[in-house]
Design a protein around this nucleic acid. Structure first.
Lengths: 230, 230
DNA sequence: ACAAATCAGTTGGAAATACAACGTTTATAT
DNA sequence: ATATAAACGTTGTATTTCCAACTGATTTGT
């Protein structure tokens, strides 16, 4: 890890991130000065946050690519997810003092990250700049969004068999689209991964449901039937 | 639904809720005046929030009991969860303008709820009271807490079979306790419900793992073994 | 236009899970 | 202390899922 003297922050880029959305390019330097982020440079393979730590800063990947990893009781490593440039990590832990990290964050390429202390985001700065409000709004919106996504996925996955998982997911997609005909953003393998089931078994189940008249589909386009099919 | 003239808000009670934690009883009246909540009285069975709505207010149950319900494409109702007095509802949707409710919230007893507009929480009030900061901190902490709980549950549930779900859960509990011996907060049926598996199948799997020497247990007390058992 | 790769559906056998039923132990109430 | 209820483990069977392998259709790259 090293301290980059001149972190190549592009304001044009930052203002498009979920955290800084709504702040203009002119306002950004003031805001950045206000929340006083730290910049860190990590080499490929370096650990950014270590399981067990108690963090108080939110991280944003500026360049490179980092991964969230979980190590269980027996030392088995499990990749939880990727964090791409512009995205946040550690934002759930940073606002819960005393809550120890259950994951590690690792740079899988040379990466530059921005670390913003949670207090700097929440406390009203001396210059009372309004950007703080916007930042907190963005932060809340972002955690709320993740929350909803997790809740939805969980509501599908808590179904006991593949058919019910599929119906739960498809029903949600249909309601979201406001139509009984809709497109899903997954191909079969991705859908199976999302629902944590076997692809072929899922395909099989889809076929059965089609034969029973519950639904029709063609690739990613689905049609749910409200009439109880024959 | 009616407008209670004199909602029986007890400041002593409010200051103990997750939302108002850290605000003293003396400060509460000022803060409450500042965020200008609305109070509503619902009869048993009345709908508080309707699926499809776009809400901008966070709700808190003051008395009674409300339930979060999901209705799918075919009209099947599914109970998502209960909200007890002092707890929040709608907090994920309130901060995402344009995001339509995928659930309904229903009073299952006569209930009084407090509705706080999201903007009142986020925008700095004229009197620039510092409580706002605390309120937002509490809100962020609360959504962060839910986020972590959801992420953890999901990481167990994404395992393909009962054994791996159990090991994922138990490993997490062990790491949280910082010991290979620990107590879990569930009985067998609750654990099975949490992991979305069949209780007897789960019991069976626990027995097999005990016989294989992976772990030992007695009721809710578990002991994970790091050595690869014979 | 053609070759190669990806994607989707199908099938059969092995493995795991759900379900129902039952006996024993542990906890709770009177 | 005793009766009652709840919790836990066990077993057998029906059902479901996983896995591997294969075919045909569609997409992609050249």
């Amino acid at each position: 890890m090293s301290m980059p003297k001149d972190p190549q922050i592009s304001y044009a880029y930052l203002k498009k991130t979920a955290l800084f959305r709504g702040v203009t390019e002119e306002e950004l330097p003031t805001l950045i000065g206000c929340i006083a982020p730290r910049y860190r440079d990590f080499e490929k393979g370096e650990i950014i946050l270590r399981q067990g730590e108690d963090i108080t800063a939110v991280g944003m990947v500026l360049s490179g690519r980092v991964q969230v990893i979980e190590e269980d009781f027996w030392g088995n490593r499990n990749i939880i997810g990727d964090v791409w440039p512009g995205e946040l990590f550690g934002e759930s832990y940073a606002f819960l003092p005393g809550e120890l990290l259950r994951v590690s964050v690792v740079a899988i390429e040379e990466s530059v990250v921005m670390l913003i202390d949670a207090r700097h985001m929440l406390e009203i700065c001396s210059s009372a700049c309004w950007f703080h409000t916007r930042l907190v709004q963005n932060l809340l919106a972002e955690t709320a969004r993740k929350n909803l996504a997790l809740t939805r996925k969980l509501s599908h996955m808590s179904k006991r068999n593949t058919r019910e998982k599929l119906l739960s997911y498809l029903s949600g997609q249909s309601l979201a689209a406001g139509s009984d005909v809709f497109e899903i953003p997954f191909n079969r393998q991705q859908l199976a991964d999302y629902l944590c089931v076997d692809r072929s078994a899922m395909s099989n189940e889809l076929g059965k449901m089609r034969d029973e008249g519950l639904l029709a589909f063609e690739r990613s386009r689905f049609h749910l039937r409200s009439e109880i099919g024959a």
